[in-house]
Design a protein around this nucleic acid. Structure first.
Lengths: 217, 217
DNA sequence: ATAAAAATTTAGATAAGTCTAAATTTTTAG
DNA sequence: CTAAAAATTTAGACTTATCTAAATTTTTAT
């Protein structure tokens, strides 16, 4: 079987692949896993031996089919546990990442299936990220960034691109909750900040930095 | 902080201490942890350095106050997760031990407290074992073994001493469920097997081996 | 009381995952 | 196009938890 650490590398390779095209570099992995490039190289050799990644020295890596299957399994478990922590245990959406990071490594298909049923087969986690299916499909979403929406459009907040505690707590303070409907007011041409109006009619000022990290439909 | 492995040793030392008096031997630990005596010795030196156990070479070990506090914390988490797995996810009581063995190592006091509340502060796990309190007290129970009960007495099944899957499944097949009331019929003088009669009037034959591992009140 | 048996510890080795420092390859800029 | 910079890999070392084999201590049985 593969270790806790190997699972984290697979998950990280998948995550980096999503936000760029081409292969994933050693340095990018070192940064995200908070290790040194030399350590990453060692692990890549190991994952390549197990045929979980395609790896050519100096050329970066890409998951094999089996590697991607495993990565999606881990992400599925992570997101299901996040739903559990928020919906059932009442944690804030900004407080669940680290705990889910541990829970995701419990490799029991029956546990995952029962948890899924207990949560009524959720399709999205508390941050709006889609939950991969049992068969390893990542549901497609067609969300736009709030920063790409035009003045006057009415949209609904569906997810976040940034998952840091600081960002999520900022959204809480602004009353920007997933699922809430907002209408775009004028976009400030100087700093591209924007005023949005929530269902309750309350105006909320949103910086471009925040708008770039909010997904809407 | 202490490792996953150190936690398992503490838990094991506590468990062995309960079922014998005097200090716990290296060999006993090696057997339960499925390692070799030499490996146990190494770990004991380490736990002694951290002042989690009292250890004198060749003399066996005993938990310090801090060691016992940690052991009870781990056992508390283990048993709370077992309640979750059985009561909320619908696992059989014979199928939860291994999964709880992994969940117990997630060291978040907030997670444990919220799980406890979500489960409505259970006092016993699915096998009738008491759940240590948040402050590290192991609730006392005054159960007798079914093998010590006299003919004609009416008792209620409250727990098990043996936790193997095989034993628990045997009880399921006999319809011997925790909480069920039974009256003792005659004890066979030859093999000390006993006939018990359940609430429904159904007679159940119980070997001495089984009776020795059933706790009643 | 002492020799044999049992239990325990020590010594030295291994595997996983990490590190630093040095070497190598690839990329970039003039 | 080539030299410097950046990225990556290799070499050698460390830590944790384990092992086997040998040495030591304790217990047991005569």
């Amino acid at each position: 079987m593969h270790s806790f650490t190997e699972e984290n590398y697979l998950k990280t390779i998948y995550a980096i692949s999503l936000r760029q095209d081409g292969d994933v570099s050693t340095n990018a992995l070192a940064e995200v896993t908070a290790t040194k490039a030399a350590s990453v190289t060692d692990m890549l050799r190991k994952l390549a031996d197990k045929e979980l990644i395609h790896y050519k020295k100096y050329q970066g890596v890409r998951l094999t089919e089996e590697g991607e299957r495993l990565a999606l399994q881990i992400i599925r478990r992570h997101r299901l546990w996040e739903v559990f922590l928020v919906d059932k245990l009442g944690f804030g959406w900004d407080a669940v990442h680290d705990i889910a990071e541990e829970l995701e490594h419990i490799r029991s298909d029956e546990l995952t299936a029962r948890l899924d049923a207990f949560l009524h087969y959720p399709q999205f986690d508390p941050h709006g990220d889609p939950i991969p299916t049992q068969t390893g499909q990542m549901p497609e979403t067609e969300y736009r960034k709030l920063s790409d929406v035009n003045e006057g459009e009415a949209v609904r907040l569906m997810g976040v691109l940034e998952h840091s505690t600081a960002f999520l707590q900022h959204l809480d303070r602004c009353q920007l909750t997933l699922g809430c409907a907002v209408t775009l007011g004028e976009i400030n041409p100087f700093d591209r900040s924007v005023r949005v109006v929530s269902e309750t009619g309350q105006p909320i000022f949103v910086s471009h930095e925040v708008a770039r990290n909010l997904l809407v439909e």
